[in-house]
Simulated assay, not measured.
Amino acid sequence: MTLQGMVKGTRNMLGRYVGKWFYDKGIPFDAANSPYFPPMVSAIQRVGSGPILDEEVEEVTKWIEEYKQSWPMIGITLMSDGWLNKVSTKEFLNFLAYSPKGTAFLSSKEVSGTKKDANFYVRLYDQIVEEVGDKHVVQFITDNARACVSAGSKLMDKRKDLVWTLCAAHNIDLMLEEIGKFKIVKETLEEARLVSRFIYNHP
């Protein structure tokens, strides 16, 4: 390998590792505009950066394609997760696939301004199952909203080989919210918040 090739390879490696650090911790890309960022990178190695994001997208896309090849053998669990963008106030429903080989993001549907009843959800759930391939879907997990519960039952009526399940994490979250309403728990939590605020405000 030539010296130029070695430098290029090192540059790409540096860029990708820095990129992975950004992605893993959800650090805004604007952080790279800090006046302290360039000296930090230069101190690591005095080279520029390559097309970091494009290379990561290519790698993830390749991994997902390999991931999909395992679906006919082991099947997947589809998971739905609602999300509200507090800045734009837009609502989204994200769909993910889980299997023993890992979890992958599949798609996101904007659902702002729509009537979110059982019929709406069952149409959406049925659509994503169709896109993925019903022969691959073993289980479908949703949150515990009444409309989602009804939609899950209707989905199982239509697709006999699919099992719909409530999200355990959401169940626990709802239980903790109810526990937090007890007077003694509520008062204890408020006292803990006061202590926490005092500690953070008096370093």
Score class of each variant (00 low, 15 high):
Q4Y: 08
M6H: 13
K8E: 14
R11S: 14
M13S: 15
R16D: 15
Y17F: 13
V18F: 02
Y23W: 02
P28Y: 06
D30M: 04
F37Y: 12
P39K: 03
S42Q: 12
R46E: 08
V47H: 05
G50M: 12
P51A: 15
E59V: 03
V60I: 11
T61S: 14
K62L: 05
E65Y: 10
Y67T: 08
Y67M: 02
Y67Q: 01
S70T: 13
S70W: 12
I76L: 14
I76V: 15
W83T: 11
K86H: 10
L93E: 01
N94T: 08
A97V: 09
Y98S: 10
K101E: 12
K101A: 02
L106A: 06
K109S: 06
E110H: 11
D117Q: 07
Y121I: 07
D126G: 14
D126I: 01
D126R: 09
V129Q: 02
E130K: 05
V132R: 00
D134N: 02
D134V: 04
Q139L: 05
D143C: 08
R146P: 02
V149A: 11
S150Q: 13
S153Y: 09
L155C: 13
R159V: 09
C167I: 11
C167G: 13
A169Q: 11
H170N: 07
G180Y: 05
K181F: 03
K186A: 10
E187Y: 03
E187R: 14
L189S: 10
E190I: 00
A192Q: 13
Y200N: 11
H202T: 15
